[in-house]
Design a protein around this nucleic acid. Structure first.
Lengths: 329, 329
DNA sequence: TTTAGCACTTTTTATTGACAAGTGCTAAAA
DNA sequence: TTTTAGCACTTGTCAATAAAAAGTGCTAAA
């Protein structure tokens, strides 16, 4: 259990260290608090015993430990309202009636990334939640054509396929059958349905059904499971703790670019804003991920901000809250 | 005019420096050439007078100047055949019949980027070369629908639009009219034709034509001019001359991510492989861009490899040649 | 024309000492 | 009991110095 003063000291140190990554000494704290540096030193020693503060070397000032950030976020952080300037910039995006929801989300996170110098990630809804809405095919030339898949949530994907000596009409017939037979199927299950429900039927009605079936089967098996959008990837370079450590940047970049990113950003089961500090997340022990789920009509997904552990928690949380609210209505 | 030996020395220095970014001294060169370090020193002095070599400080070894690289590429570089291992990895991509051309290009450049640790860029064909092939519309719910635009070169783009109190049938009618009236129009000119050829007609036949027209007009005016694909963006971090210089990395990253990238990679007028060293390119004075145009049937574009000035010119050129050949047939 | 030899420059690395910042502990003050 | 003043002690930082390594340019001889 921390004393009032210890709480104050911890809060001061965390916030000061977030402003500037320099270990904070007792004297600096005592100037703000109304007590001597010796008193502060005693408390800082106690906070270190509790594992909330750390020293970089025996006689350095203190920096927050991971647990310290955690404690700060859970107990000390005050959620200030977003500042007017930030809000204004976001309003410009939200007020734009022309934009589709997904564009609004992307653009507003781009704005946040620019304002904060952190990296932003949008994960679209997962494929088992997407239902096949409709497919279309557009012939390009004698052999190649483009298959376009649209889901009920408005996710569009297209693939080029090549078919030799197959008449367009037969392909169109197949497309018609697919649309009639399995529209409304979760994307995950399309492959299965294609095999057991569509294949037998086109076998009867469509010439060269084998070739056509294979092509379509392929298109669906490659369907991207989830849309991932990363904004401000290189903002990491702006963070002093990374820019002096290329190896760290490489690992973080690789994590961001890896296809497993989706798995590394945990889907929360509730709707709140979550803060994953250091080892609490799967990206890197030196970053913090602040994220939340959003839901608007059928569309849903996760938006996340990734920055150093000493990120401006209060600012980012209030921004996410604001964005989430605006998305959801 | 350089002597035989001077040519040899320059070649040696360039190639050695490319292998490892350490200034090359006369002793190291003399060990390989059959002459004393003093002789080499004299020639190196002459090469420096000619502006082909540089010193990092008064008593350092030499490094190639920009002109030195230029001279090397133009006169000294020997095009070796690709090594078997590299070729094999690329063959796996080319042999994959399932892939559409654009995927083959992207994937093979991804492979090159992985093998070389340089960044790769693909620029698709420019919009004035793309003709409108067909548009489709897929309704998602009461108000929103997706418009899909396909060009004759197989470029697909889609946009979400929102229309209140408009019947789907009227939209479909409009789509039909657009397809009939202006299919085959260069994308650049679609907006104009939409206004002068389509607007008057849908004004007659389509209810709520104003709203619908505006929506479609918007969709086309946002059509991306050119497809840009960047592979291995963060490979820059692997290059020693950049990884010790965060500011440089930032500028290069920003250039890569900026929308003007397309303008910064000059379209060549002929079909050869071009090498733009340092100030010869518009990306950064510290990088080299090696690029070439490709053409396959209707599809064409530019592929480029971006790396440090001390990139492995011979290797990259032979790889690009190989890829280009494979793409074009 | 080439080479051996040498004086000279510059970078790199290690060492030293002085100073600043900060801590922990003790003992006195509140 | 809590707070504070005081002080010895640690560590990092910075500048100065010194020695070693790498390489050059020039001269004079081969």
């Amino acid at each position: 259990m921390l004393s009032e003063r210890q709480n104050k000291i911890l809060k001061l140190i965390v916030e000061r260290y977030i402003k500037e990554p320099i270990p904070v000494g007792s004297k600096a704290v005592s100037k703000i608090l109304k007590c001597s540096s010796a008193t502060v030193r005693n408390d800082m020693g106690e906070l270190e015993n509790q594992g909330l503060l750390e020293k970089t070397h025996t006689s350095s000032g203190r920096i927050p430990s991971e647990a310290g950030y955690r404690y700060y976020v859970d107990n000390l952080m005050e959620l200030k309202k977003m500042n007017a300037e930030d809000m204004l910039k976001l309003q410009i995006v939200f007020k734009n009636q022309q934009l589709a929801l997904s564009d609004v989300i992307t653009k507003s996170l781009q704005v946040i990334s620019d304002m904060t110098n952190y990296t932003a990630v949008v994960l679209g809804s997962t494929s088992h939640e997407n239902l096949l809405k409709q497919i279309e095919v557009v012939p390009i030339d004698d052999v190649s054509m483009i298959v376009i898949i649209v889901t009920d949530k408005g996710h569009v994907e297209h693939k080029n396929i090549k078919l030799n000596d197959v008449s367009i009409d037969e392909v169109k017939k197949t497309v018609g059958l697919i649309n009639n037979l399995i529209s409304g199927t979760p994307i995950d299950e399309v492959s299965r349905k294609l095999e057991f429900e569509v294949k037998p039927i086109i076998g009867k009605y469509v010439k060269q059904h084998e070739q056509i079936y294979n092509a379509f089967y392929h298109v669906f098996s490659d369907f991207t499971n989830q849309e991932v959008n990363i904004m401000g990837r290189s903002k990491m370079l702006e963070q002093p703790e990374f820019s002096s450590n290329i190896e760290k940047i490489k690992t973080v970049f690789n994590k961001l670019d890896s296809p497993e990113l989706i798995n590394n950003i945990v889907e929360d089961d509730d709707n709140n804003i979550k803060v994953y500090i250091g080892n609490e997340n799967n990206i890197d022990s030196d970053v913090t991920v602040i994220q939340t789920k959003y839901k608007n009509g059928g569309e849903e997904g996760t938006i996340a901000i990734i920055g150093p552990k000493r990120m401006e928690y209060d600012r980012v949380v209030s921004m996410l809250e604001y964005i989430k609210d605006n998305i959801e209505r």
